[in-house]
């Protein structure tokens, strides 16, 4: 398939410039930075997961082999881990689906030559600019159970809610805020993809008598596929790693919104005021490694699936 051929590894071409030294040096410097500050710590985390590092001076670190991993899979922890895993998956899948869905719809809307659409494009992207803390605070204010606007709205229809305190809807609310904050980036990427679709294709299709939905499904959507792949991949990976927003909105001790990354942070550095559970950072590193494997598997699976759909379309 041609698509696959395009994505083949870069072929080593003849270097046209007089001296190789420059490219080697700059590449080397860049790579050195990445290796030193990103890859080395990443590998080190995997190494740390086999120790009982506590992050305290004077307390020696011992090699404990796979004990941390065994602890993780012990039946006592099963409830916590399944909970975190489930929350992470729900967050990633539902969040990404909603994010893609809304982004697609919004970008279709904003692609039309409507008046003031640049303004609306800017508006949609703004939450991403505001950042997690600002976004989190804004929505904490809105979802304030002691009389915030949402509560007043609910009162008006006769119910009420504890919002982030209600274990049934807390995760849903977090997903909602997450989508609100992230949809802007996806919209921008989709818009770019949409604008790359030649107008003639649309016209041809409509001359042939295709309805709007058919045109979308058979012309627009397939050509959007690369943007969709990029977006979904970024969305899923982002969601699986994301915990800053959850942290700001619901705190680290909220079981119903505890995702894997948050578990890593809480276990490594504490965060549950009032408990006396004190894990080692080695254990936290083990969770981080497991999460890495999980994200890798899911990302690869998603990529594989989407690439195949792309090619088929």
């Amino acid at each position: 398939m041609t698509a696959r051929a395009e994505r083949a590894a870069p072929v080593r071409t003849r270097f046209p410039f007089p001296r190789r030294g420059a490219v080697r040096l700059t590449f080397g410097l860049g790579m050195l930075m990445l290796v030193l500050f990103a890859f080395v710590p990443a590998v080190a985390v995997i190494v740390v997961s086999f120790t009982d590092l506590r992050g305290l001076t004077y307390v020696p670190t011992l090699w404990v082999g796979i004990e941390n991993y065994l602890d993780f899979f012990s039946p006592a922890r099963a409830a916590d881990n399944w909970n975190a895993l489930r929350n992470t998956m729900v967050f990633a899948i539902v969040g990404t689906v909603l994010q893609m869905g809304f982004a697609l719809a919004i970008s279709l809307l904003l692609n039309r030559p409507l008046r003031g659409r640049n303004f609306f494009r800017a508006v949609v992207f703004m939450p991403t600019i505001l950042g997690v803390t600002v976004g989190g605070l804004i929505w904490s204010l809105i979802f304030n159970p002691a009389g915030g606007p949402m509560q007043s709205l609910l009162h008006a229809v006769g119910t009420q809610s504890a919002f982030f305190g209600d274990p049934r809807i807390a995760l849903g609310l977090v997903i909602f805020v997450h989508v609100w904050m992230q949809v802007g980036i996806s919209v921008v990427i989709f818009l770019a993809g949409l604008q790359a679709i030649p107008a003639e294709l649309q016209e041809v299709a409509s001359i042939d008598g295709a309805s709007a939905w058919q045109r979308f499904r058979n012309v627009t959507f397939p050509l959007l596929a690369p943007s969709l792949t990029a977006n979904v991949l970024m969305g899923v990976v982002n969601a699986m790693h994301s915990y800053q927003l959850t942290y700001v909105l619901a705190g680290p001790s909220n079981r119903s919104t505890q995702v894997l990354s948050l578990l890593v942070y809480v276990q490594a550095f504490g965060g549950e005021s009032g408990t006396s559970l004190s894990q080692s950072q080695g254990y936290a590193a083990a969770i981080a490694t497991l999460q890495f494997v999980l994200v890798g598997v899911i990302a690869l699976a998603t990529l594989f699936y989407l690439r195949r759909r792309e090619a088929r379309l």
């Binding site: 990445l34 990103a38 710590p41 985390v45 740390v48 992050g55 942070y265 990302a299």
Partner: peptide, 16 residues
């Protein structure tokens, strides 16, 4: 591609 989903290396980045 690996750069995309490196594990959460907070602990070791701190040590580094």
């Amino acid at each position: 591609a690996l750069l995309l989903f490196l594990p959460n290396s907070l602990i070791t980045q701190f040590q580094l």
